[in-house]
């Protein structure tokens, strides 16, 4: 049994892994970033890409070496060496991956906690999803409403309270790196701190029917002053679209009951 050129193979893995990492890190995989969550998530992805490059390099080098070194010559009817295993090696390639994935899981957990931390002065905005439109409510700025267009101030945490009116939809702004389903009958929320002024697109990411492809809304991130001026101009009238949904009516009814309003009255007019 010839000895394996371990050192050369390790070197090959390091070189190949490094080349892959350098090449792959040249690309801006997740596109433009416009929230405070983007930094930690993008770094996590970069770390994972580098680790993956080396793991992939191990597989490629081992496979390539074996194919070059032990390719049978034509007509060779002999067998390989009767090696059935190597307990020490098998323990090593069980334990090391366990450590790697647990470390990555721990890192991911830390990032998750970091991006979901809420501020006490966060701005609450309601996002209503229905086939195939988005409507937004601004309960903290005079119960204003906007349809198909969302405005938020820059550098201030926003908590979106998501409500779906018919089927499941999903709230996704790629530049913010956040996504959360809006589920009928369930309250979900998503936390984001936009940190770059600009215009983005809100994309429905969960299949919701025929109009799923085009279910988008415009997102404008602007200075607090611009936001205040914009929100002041919005209407306080509940959008017609929402009034047509049973889910919305039920929600309003519940609110009325909780705040001691008259039971079963014409609840929807605010």
């Amino acid at each position: 049994m010839t000895r394996l050129p371990i050192l050369k193979m390790v070197l090959a893995v390091i070189v190949l892994g490094a080349i892959q990492s350098v090449v792959l890190l040249q690309f801006d995989w997740f596109g433009d970033a416009a929230s405070t969550a983007a930094g930690p998530i993008d770094t996590l992805m970069d770390v994972t890409i580098v680790l993956s490059s080396f793991i992939f390099a191990i597989v490629c080098v081992a496979l390539g070496y074996a194919l070059i070194k032990w390719r049978a010559k034509p007509g060779d009817e002999g067998d390989g060496l009767p090696i059935h295993g190597n307990t020490r090696l098998e323990i090593v390639w069980t334990i090391i991956p366990v450590i790697i994935v647990l470390a990555l899981a721990g890192y991911s957990w830390a990032v998750l906690d970091d991006i979901e931390k809420t501020d006490s002065n966060a701005l609450h905005v309601n996002a209503y999803a229905q086939q195939f439109a988005w409507t937004f409510g601004y309960p903290e700025d005079g119960n204003k409403w906007s349809e198909g267009e969302l405005h938020v101030p820059v550098d201030r945490q926003v908590i979106f309270d998501l409500q779906a009116q018919d089927v499941i939809h999903s709230f996704w702004v790629p530049e913010w790196r956040i996504k959360k389903d809006a589920v009928p009958g369930l309250k979900t929320d998503v936390v984001v701190t936009p940190d770059k002024v600009g215009t983005y697109q809100l994309i429905c990411a969960e299949l919701c029917g025929i109009g799923h492809t085009t279910m988008r809304a415009k997102v404008v991130v602007e200075s607090q002053a611009d936001y205040d001026a914009w929100v002041k101009k919005q209407t306080t009238k509940v959008p017609e679209l929402l009034l047509t949904t049973d889910q919305f009516k039920q929600e309003q009814l519940k609110k009325e009951e909780q705040s001691g309003g008259i039971e079963g009255s014409g609840v929807v007019e605010q």
């Binding site: 049994m1 074996a66 032990w70 060779d76 002999g78 060496l81 069980t94």
Partner: peptide
Amino acid sequence: AVPTGIKVFSWLGTLFYGKIH
């Protein structure tokens, strides 16, 4: 991913010192 990784490594280990056709 760990048991799956074990399988990949073991297939590679099977190739080593073999006569690969």
